[in-house]
Amino acid sequence: MVQKSRNGGVYPGPSGEKKLKVGFVGLDPGAPDSTRDGALLIAGSEAPKRGSILSKPRAGGAGAGKPPKRNAFYRKLQNFLYNVLERPRGWAFIYHAYVFLLVFSCLVLSVFSTIKEYEKSSEGALYILEIVTIVVFGVEYFVRIWAAGCCCRYRGWRGRLKFARKPFCVIDIMVLIASIAVLAAGSQGNVFATSALRSLRFLQILRMIRMDRRGGTWKLLGSVVYAHSKELVTAWYIGFLCLILASFLVYLAEKGENDHFDTYADALWWGLITLTTIGYGDKYPQTWNGRLLAATFTLIGVSFFALPAGILGSGFALKVQEQHRQKHFEKRRNPAAGLIQSAWRFYATNLSRTDLHSTWQYYERTVTVPMYSSQTQTYGASRLIPPLNQLELLRNLKSKSGLAFRKDPPPEPSPSKGSPCRGPLCGCCPGRSSQKVSLKDRVFSSPRGVAAKGKGSPQAQTVRRSPSADQSLEDSPSKVPKSWSFGDRSRARQAFRIKGAASRQNSEEASL
């Protein structure tokens, strides 16, 4: 019999049943779409005989028809080659250093092939080196495509196609095609072959870009420019304004007297070369007005044109410092986490200390709560409330009815002989401070409620009492009544008793 458990639990079988086999339907690529829901599959020993999904071999995947050992070796080799080519560490840098020397040698020989004295001697060596480079780069490109299958997102032919569309893979295939075209054109020995050789060798310069396949330098440059984009835009904007204004004023001053400034384009060329401190010297002002304007705008514009270099330099320094700090933080993070875990385990398992309490023990206690009866409008029989619902239920009951529930009420002091009981919340009678006064009792026990209740009776009109401690106690149990005489010590004692009862009640409510 096959059962599914969608909550991750395992159904224990009877003692008479045989052992169960467990598997996940959602992990089987050969299962139909209706059953690939991630549910837990529990099947008996007879299920494989019936041809269940556990008995079927995997229909898809890279190692579907391969033995386990061969499949493990296949995956291990794939991961190894992918890490060597895409994430070089340790001795893997030897291969990348060899590729760099190969590319650099091709670049140097290409430069010498353009010089007439070394053209014949360098062409033969360059031809052999180009063949070696094409073979190495071609094999490396196909190995990269194959090894990318170790990543989940690059599996299958669609994943390989996605990997081949990456920018550096596109550069690799462009350089490979250009190198093959250069060799094919150079072997023909005609004029067209020579011109094609010179034009296609430009694409071989892109080999130097592939040295940084992970794009660390470009990411660093982009992060620095993005972090200081506002400062760079401000400096370039002001420098551009200085360039336009200086070129226009010098053009007006030199026009008609200097042949170097016949057009405004000549003035812009002079301004750009001057403000960037290049100074070719092919154009320069000759009149005193033009020289004065050139000197003034040079002092202003050079500072703004040189400002981005300082901004980028400081940004690079701060970014490198931040990377070093992050690297040290990552080195200290795992030991710190292990130290915290060890300290907590020692703290939680220390049996010699009796003052340690688990944080979840508070929620494991069961509280007896009286249940409210809507018919009699009273609190009758009580029941046990689950631990997770205790706090919310108690808050709702307290807010609606005004009752305070507590588990172990402390012993109440008995009323003394000299001070009789003053009210239901005086704190001297046991069992009276455990409940709050309802809204109805407060209204009818207050002086205003009594006056409103007995407004029509003649006794209420004739008998008038001065405010005393009895009425103030019933009005607000948490307030201290004001004494009408300064020498009345009994009223002071009563006030301290009320304060103590109120503080105890607040602490009990907070504990609930």
Rank of each mutant, 00 (worst) to 15 (best):
I278T: 10
T194I: 00
E130K: 10
R214Q: 11
D355V: 03
S342L: 05
T114I: 11
L356V: 14
T349I: 14
A235V: 01
A337V: 07
Y284D: 07
R198Q: 15
P335L: 12
A265P: 01
L307P: 09
G290D: 01
N350H: 09
R214W: 11
R207Q: 06
I205V: 01
G279C: 02
W344R: 02
G159E: 12
S352P: 15
N79K: 13
K230Q: 05
A185G: 12
I273N: 08
V250L: 12
T359A: 05
L243F: 14
Q204R: 04
P420L: 15
L249P: 05
L339Q: 06
S55C: 11
E254D: 08
E119G: 13
A306P: 07
E231Q: 08
R291S: 02
S199R: 13
N190S: 11
L268F: 14
K162R: 13
G313E: 11
R210P: 00
E231D: 04
S247L: 04
T234P: 12
N258Y: 02
L351F: 14
D266E: 00
R144Q: 15
F329S: 10
D266G: 01
F304C: 03
D259N: 10
G9D: 15
I311N: 07
A178V: 07
T217N: 07
L243V: 08
T359K: 09
V182M: 12
Y127C: 12
K219N: 10
T276I: 03
H328N: 03
M211V: 14
H260Y: 12
T217I: 00
P386S: 11
N350K: 13
V175L: 15
Q341R: 11
A309V: 02
S247P: 01
S195C: 13
A193D: 13
G281R: 01
L351V: 14
P285H: 06
Y264N: 04
A337G: 05
A147P: 02
F304S: 01
A185T: 14
A294G: 15
G271V: 08
Q341H: 02
H260P: 06
S314P: 11
I209T: 05
H96P: 10
G159R: 00
V225D: 07
D212E: 06
G239R: 10
I273M: 04
M1V: 00
G290V: 04
A343S: 09
R325G: 03
F261I: 13
T276N: 10
P430S: 07
L81P: 06
M1T: 00
H228Y: 13
F104S: 12
M1K: 01
G271R: 04
T378I: 14
K283E: 12
K230M: 00
I340T: 03
D282V: 03
K283R: 12
R210C: 00
S358F: 13
Y280C: 08
V320I: 10
T274M: 08
W269L: 05
A294V: 06
G8S: 14
A265V: 04
R213W: 05
Y362C: 13
T263A: 05
G281W: 07
R210H: 09
R333Q: 09
L85R: 04
S122L: 12
A62V: 15
L221R: 07
L268P: 08
G290S: 06
G222D: 05
G256R: 08
P335S: 14
G189V: 03
E231G: 05
F305L: 06
P335A: 04
D259Y: 09
G159V: 03
T296P: 03
G418V: 15
G301D: 06
L206P: 02
L339R: 03
V250G: 09
A267T: 04
T287N: 02
D259G: 10
L206R: 04
R353H: 10
N258S: 14
A253T: 04
T277S: 06
R332G: 04
P411L: 13
R214P: 00
Q204H: 08
P285L: 09
V225F: 09
L312S: 01
A317T: 14
A253S: 12
P285S: 08
F248S: 14
L197P: 08
I278F: 07
G215R: 04
W269C: 02
T217P: 00
I278N: 06
M208V: 02
L293P: 08
M211R: 02
C169F: 15
I238L: 11
L292P: 11
N190H: 09
Y154D: 12
A265T: 10
A306T: 15
C242G: 11
D212V: 01
T114A: 11
A306V: 12
A196V: 10
R333W: 09
D212G: 09
E322G: 06
W360C: 05
H96N: 14
A337T: 06
R213Q: 06
V250A: 03
F261C: 05
K255R: 11
S195P: 15
L101H: 07
G281E: 02
Y284C: 10
K331T: 00
R207W: 01
G315R: 01
L356R: 13
I340M: 07
D355E: 13
G215E: 01
G279D: 03
A193V: 02
L388F: 15
S223P: 02
D172G: 03
L318V: 13
R201H: 15
T263I: 06
Q188K: 10
H228Q: 08
Y237C: 07
L107F: 11
N350I: 08
L200P: 00
R353G: 01
G301S: 09
D212A: 00
K319R: 04
S247W: 09
L203P: 00
D282N: 05
Y280H: 07
S113F: 03
R144G: 15
V225I: 12
